[in-house]
């Protein structure tokens, strides 16, 4: 459903992604693993439309959207859980969720609120609370919930585990796996290869702006390069 060809992205003079190929099938959970500075966030930002590639093509469900703006991509079924959550800090939990469903009608909004509150009962309890007063874990859940409000076909997740306690990391990855029941494909970029490989169907390894490996989790876990770089030997 998502296919990326030869993606080049640069900040000014510096090229960060040097011709990345990538694809995600319907119903798949795919991870892009890589160290700090490998270009993972750049990749996600380009996919949602915050950055424009200097070369290459992005197509989604058979349609080219390389030069479409973020809101046009959301309309076509993408959603993002950005790094750090990026909640609308001064708005309540429910207003954040409402904004997540900005393009949906009133019925879908109600349905999806139900879905999100079932996934994260804590958010229902905190409905009226201003989002910046939530704990780190709750904020991350709200960010995921907000993205799910638009009934996305493809969810882009940027470093969801960053800054969370290990126990919460496990919980969040569990939730991501459960999201599959809602007919959403997922592309997540992660530094935490160990936890990510437990839930994905397939993964890429990104190093210095190049995809150097692709494979099933069990193959990658055995690969000495992955072991050395991301799984602590």
């Amino acid at each position: 459903m998502l296919s990326v060809e030869n993606l080049h992205v640069r900040y000014g003079q510096i090229e960060v992604l040097h011709g990345v190929p990538l694809h995600v099938q319907e119903g798949e959970i795919v991870a892009v693993l890589g160290a700090n500075g490998a270009g993972k966030s750049t990749l996600i930002k380009t996919l949602i439309g915050w950055l424009e590639p200097s070369e290459g093509e992005i197509s989604f469900q058979g349609e080219r959207l390389t030069h479409l703006s973020a809101w046009e991509r959301v309309r076509r079924g993408m959603a993002i859980v950005p790094e750090g959550g990026r909640l609308f800090r001064d708005l309540s939990v429910e207003d954040n969720l409402r904004l997540g469903a900005f393009l949906q009608d009133e019925n879908t909004l109600k349905e999806q609120l139900e879905v999100v509150y079932t996934l994260f009962p804590i958010l229902a309890e905190r409905r009226k609370q201003v989002s910046k007063t939530l704990s780190g874990g709750e904020q991350q859940m709200l960010a995921i919930g907000r993205a799910m409000m638009s009934k996305p076909r493809l969810l882009l997740i940027d470093e969801v585990s960053m800054g969370l306690m290990p126990i919460l990391v496990r919980r969040v990855f569990q939730v991501i796996r459960e999201l599959r029941e809602h007919h959403v494909s997922i592309l997540l970029v992660e530094q935490n290869a160990f936890e990510a490989l437990k839930i994905v169907n397939r993964a890429y390894v990104l190093e210095n702006g190049h995809i150097i490996l692709e494979g099933q989790p069990d193959e990658l876990e055995k690969d000495p390069r992955v072991k050395a770089a991301y799984l602590g030997g």
Binding site: G49, W50, A70, W71, I80, L91, D95, F102
Partner: peptide, 21 residues
């Protein structure tokens, strides 16, 4: 009004929930 509030807090994120900026 909600879209303005969202855009005033984080313009990029507002676009990424589908708001036509």
């Amino acid at each position: 009004g909600l879209s303005w509030q969202a855009a005033s807090m984080d313009r990029e994120m507002a676009a990424a929930v589908g708001i036509n900026l």
